[in-house]
Write a protein that binds this DNA or RNA. Sequence first.
RNA 1: GCCAACGUAGCUCAGCUGGUAGAGCAGCUGAUUCGUAAUCAGCAGGUCGCAGGUUCAAGUCCUGUCGUUGGCUCCA
Length: 637
Amino acid sequence: MAIQVRLPDDSVRELRDGATGEDLAATIGPRLLEASLAVRADGQIVDLRRPLQDGARVALITSKDSEGLEVVRHSTAHLLAQAVKNLFPAARVGIGPVIEDGFYYDFLVEKFFTPEDLEAIEAEMRRISGEDLPVVREELLRNDAVARFEAMGEHLKVELVSDIPEDQVITGYAQGNFYDLCRGPHVPSTGKLKAFKLLNTAAAYWKGDEKNASMCRIYGTAFHTQKELDEHLKRLEEAKARDHRKLGKELSLFSFHPEAPASPFFHPKGALVYNLLVDFMREHYQSEGYQEVITPQVLDVAMWKTSGHYDNFRESMFFTEAEEREYALKPMNCPSHCLIYGAGHHSYRDLPLRLADFGRLHRYERSGVTHGLTRVRTFCQDDAHIYCTPDQMKAEMASFLVFIKRVYDTFGFEEMRVALSTRPEKRLGSDEMWDEAEEALAGALREAGMDFHINPGEGAFYGPKIEFQVLDALRRPWQLGTLQVDYSMPARFGLTYVRPDNTEGQPVMLHRAILGSLERFMGILIEHCAGAFPAWLAPIQVAVLPVTDRTHAFAQELGARLKAEGFRAEVDLRNEKVNAKIRDAQLQKVPYMLVVGDREAASGQVSVRHRSRGDLGAQDLGGFLDQLALEVRTRAR
RNA sequence: GCCAACGUAGCUCAGCUGGUAGAGCAGCUGAUUCGUAAUCAGCAGGUCGCAGGUUCAAGUCCUGUCGUUGGCUCCA
C-alpha cells in the first residue's frame, strides 16, 4: 500500500502507507529533514512524526516559514516547564500557551521565581536543548490521563483533563523525563529550539480567576533564528527608551505625586502640548459644526441614577457629600449634555446638535491597573455628543469617519484598525434597540468601506460602539477614538424634538471621541514620536545658541524676533561651549537650533541645525521664519 | 482589589553577610570665550518613602502603611 500527497508546487509524491512528514522530508533531502519543524497537512499544522493521509496537500514547515513560529514558541514553553521541573521539582505546572510576542507558562510554587532563578532556568533550557531530546506525542484515554497526572502530582493538569470535552482526543507529549498534557503540535526534538529568552515573571491567577490560586507566570519569547530574536529584543529596548513615563520626566512634561495617585501633574511644557492638542481639536470643531459647552464637575447622585451610571458604572466613580446631599464627580460628560439639551425646545431644524466638552473627568481605577498617562484617574476627552434624528444618524456617522481619519493622519497614524463592540451583559434598553444600534454602526462602516472585526459583549452599557485603534511607530496598537450609538440616555432624560408634522420624536445620541483621553493620547504620542514632537507641538521650537558671549546681544535679538513672530524660542546664554548647548537642545528634542557666532552677527544670517537632519548651513532669517511658519501652520509631521 | 518586585541627593545609580551614607549628571561660585552631541576647578545638596518593632547599633532584619513597576482583571 502506498499513499500520495500533494506538495505546494502541485507535484505529487508517493510514500509508503503510514509515512510521516519526517519521511517525506527525508525523501526530498537531508537538509530539509534537518530544517523541518512541523508539517501543514490540509491546512492544519501537525507534528512532523504524524502519519500523513492519502491525498493530503502537505507542506513542510521550516524556520523559513512564519507559521512555524507558533510551534517553536509552544515547544519552547514546554522546554521552560521541563527546566523548571528539573530545578524546582516541587513546582506544579499550569498552562503554557503561545501569546502575541512569545509565550508564557504558569507555575504553582511556594516561593516566587527571582531574576536569578530565571537565569538558572534559561541555562537549564539551553542544556536540555543541547541534549536534543525527541518530543513524542501520545494519545491517552481519559482515565489513563487522569491517573498519569495524578501519579505525577500535577493536580492542575488533572483539572484540565476533566475540562476537555468528551469527544476530543486527549494527547500528551514526552520529552526526556518531562511529560505534559498538550494538544500540540510540537517540534520533533528539543535541539530545534535555539533562539529563546526568558523575559520576566508576573503573578497570574489559575484560569484568570482571582478567587483561584495565584501562580508565578514566566514570560519568554522564541524565534526561528538568533537574528530575529535579537531584533525583537532590540525592539523591546527601543520601546523602553520611548516609554512616555521616562520621557515625560526627561523632557519635564509631567510628574506624578502620591498626593493624587494615578493623576498627572502637567508641567509648563506638558501643559503647552496638552493645550495645543485641545486647540487643534477646537479648530476642527469650528469647521465640523460642533459647539463647545462647559459643565460641572460635581453632580447630584440623583442624576447619575437617571443616566444609569449609578447602577452600571458606580464602582468606577468617586463620590462626595455636602449638606447631607450625595454627589459624584463626573466620569463622563453625557448626562450633563442631556441636561443642556433638555433645557430648551428643539425642532428638527435645530438638529444635529453637536455638543463638545473638554471637561475634566474622574474615574476610580483600581490601584494596580493604572499606568503612566495611559491609564489614569483624572483625564479629559475630546468628547462630544451629537443629538440628531434617526434619519440624520447615517450622515453623521459618515462624516465622523472622515473626520477621524483626517485627525489621525495629522499625527502620522496612517494605519487604523476598527472594531465593533456589541451589547454587554450589563446594559440598558431593549434588544430591538440594540439590534438597530449595532446595525447602524456596522452599516456606516461598510458604507465607508472600512474593514472591521467584532468584539462581542464589549459595548458600553448604554450602547454599542465602534473603537478605533491606531498603530504607532513601533507598530503597537492603541485604542483611541470611539463612536457610540445611544437610544437609552435620550429616553431616560426625556429628550424630544418636534418633527415637521408637529409630532414629538426622540433624538438619537451619538457619543464620540477621536483622541480619546488627552492624557492617554499624549502618552501614546510621546511614544510614537519618541519625545520628538513635530514642530507645531514642540514645547520649544527653536533654541538660539550663541557661540560666545560676544554674540549674546544678537542671539537675544533673534530670540525676541522669533517670539514676536509667534514661535516658542529659547536663548541659551549659559557659559557653555556651543557643543554642550547643542547636546542639551538635542536631548530636549528641540526641532531647530540656531547657532550664532561672529560670522552670523556680522552677516545677519542664522546657521540652522535640525534635530534629526543635522547642520543645514547658514541662511537668511526671513527664509527660515517662512519655512518654520509653513511647517507649523500645516502641522507637518 | 489580588500576586510579586522595587522605593537611597532634582535625575541615574552604588552601598557585600547590621557598625553611623557615596558617585556621575543637574544646581551654585569662579576660571575659560570656545563653531554643530558634554571645558576645567571648587562648593553645596540626603530625617535612605512613611510609621512602628528587633538590636548596644538599622539604608541594611521584621511588621504595617503609602507610592511605583510587572502582571491578573478592567478600560479611554
